[in-house]
């Protein structure tokens, strides 16, 4: 579990700095793939349709649980690039309060050029992932889901 007390913004800045070291998008992809390969596995009981994120070309499952006022995400996908992308989102958003997650604008995605470099289909998938994560935060923040 996350014992890190940094804000989402601070983690985003760290990711942006990491990505600035790569010369081209193939290297960035290489890194995203590595992240995907090392994403901690989701409990298999959550790999069901109920936890599937719709709007992704590949299958992607996302689960969230609250502990001590912080929301923790876990995920898996059958495509490793999708896993790498959700791993980045989890790294930024997991372990924070629902309110902080809801307020985050995830600017780092634009700063690292993620949206520009994803195909429109994958970009829609990214939007879906973020919506699902924020919806979890809404639920746990006691607000109603849209």
């Amino acid at each position: 579990m996350n014992t890190d007390n940094r804000t989402i913004r601070e983690i985003e800045d760290e990711i942006v700095e990491e990505f600035s070291m790569f010369e081209d998008w193939m290297s960035k992809y290489e890194y995203i793939i590595e992240l995907g390969k090392h994403l901690p596995l989701i409990d298999t009981k959550y790999k069901t349709d109920e936890f599937k994120v719709s709007g992704c070309q590949s299958q992607l499952w996302l689960h969230a649980e609250m502990k001590d006022g912080r929301l923790y995400f876990s995920a898996d996908s059958d495509a490793v690039i999708s896993k790498g992308i959700i791993a980045l989102l989890i790294r930024a958003m997991s372990g924070h309060s629902p309110a902080e997650i809801l307020n985050s604008d995830l600017e780092f995605l634009d700063k690292i050029g993620m949206r520009v470099h994803l195909s429109p289909n994958r970009s829609n998938g990214l939007t879906s992932m973020i919506n699902y994560m924020k919806n979890y935060a809404k639920i746990y923040a006691g607000q109603s889901v849209q």
Partner: peptide, 21 residues
């Protein structure tokens, strides 16, 4: 051991248009 979409995304990065799915 890989998903077709992953290879498709990488090939696109390298300028190649192929179909996946």
């Amino acid at each position: 051991g890989t998903h077709p979409y992953d290879a498709g995304a990488l090939l696109d990065q390298m300028g190649i248009a192929v179909r996946t799915g």
